[in-house]
């Protein structure tokens, strides 16, 4: 039997405050101007892998489809290449809207589980915040150790090639004045 789904949307299912929330984020102001032409989706190198095209994400955000938007794969597939924003005829900065949605998704723990993209972002964030610099090897190592250990084995040959070409330093680099960085980050308004 073909499963049948009822997809009607009632106003009470929607969160109409959501668009105001997104629009108040710096860079996302122009979301009102969208004319739904779809040039962002056509310009996007990844839209063909997304569950909703970027154009749809904008429409859904404006209409308060909060749950669908925050749990979508789309926002995590965005590679932040800004092609959408470069093409947009209405100067909607779609990339910044994607960033804002990603942040809300993390805040509300709505992002897809066991999906490596937010995991990499988080691992990178934590590492750099304390060390001041990234160590490509360790960040990648930590992500895959958590998400899928077997992937690490598959990466070995490439790792070895990079290592022998002096392109994969194993030392954990850090800045000298980590205290200064810590002072800055702990004095930001948004920081708890």
């Amino acid at each position: 039997m073909i499963p049948i789904q009822r997809t009607i949307k009632y106003e009470s299912d929607l969160d109409h405050a959501f668009r105001e929330k997104i629009m108040s984020v710096q860079g996302c102001e122009n979301i009102w101007s969208c004319i739904q032409c779809g040039q962002c989706s056509a310009a996007c190198p990844l839209s063909i892998y997304m569950d909703y095209t970027p154009r749809k994400i904008i429409a859904m955000t404006r209409e308060g489809f909060r749950e669908e938007v925050l749990s979508s794969r789309t926002i995590w597939l965005c590679a932040s290449c800004y092609a959408c924003a470069a093409y947009c005829p209405q100067n909607v900065n779609i990339t910044e809207i994607m960033y804002a949605l990603k942040r809300y998704a993390i805040e509300e723990k709505k992002y897809p589980k066991n999906f490596p993209i937010p995991e990499l972002a988080k691992a990178f964030f934590t590492y750099v915040k304390t060390h001041g610099r990234n160590a490509e090897f360790w960040v990648v190592f930590n992500v895959w150790r958590r998400v899928a250990v077997f992937k690490l084995l598959k990466m070995l040959p490439l790792g070895w090639k990079l290592l022998t070409r002096r392109r994969l330093p194993l030392r954990r680099d850090r800045i000298q004045n980590t205290r200064q960085l810590k002072t800055i980050l702990s004095n930001l308004n948004g920081e708890a």
Binding site: A121, V128, G132, L181, L185
Partner: peptide
């Protein structure tokens, strides 16, 4: 110098990213 935060940082906390 410290890391710029790259594109990943903006997905977690934009203010921290900008401050870095």
């Amino acid at each position: 110098w410290n890391c710029c935060g790259a594109t990943s940082y903006m997905s977690i906390d934009e203010e921290v990213a900008l401050a870095m």
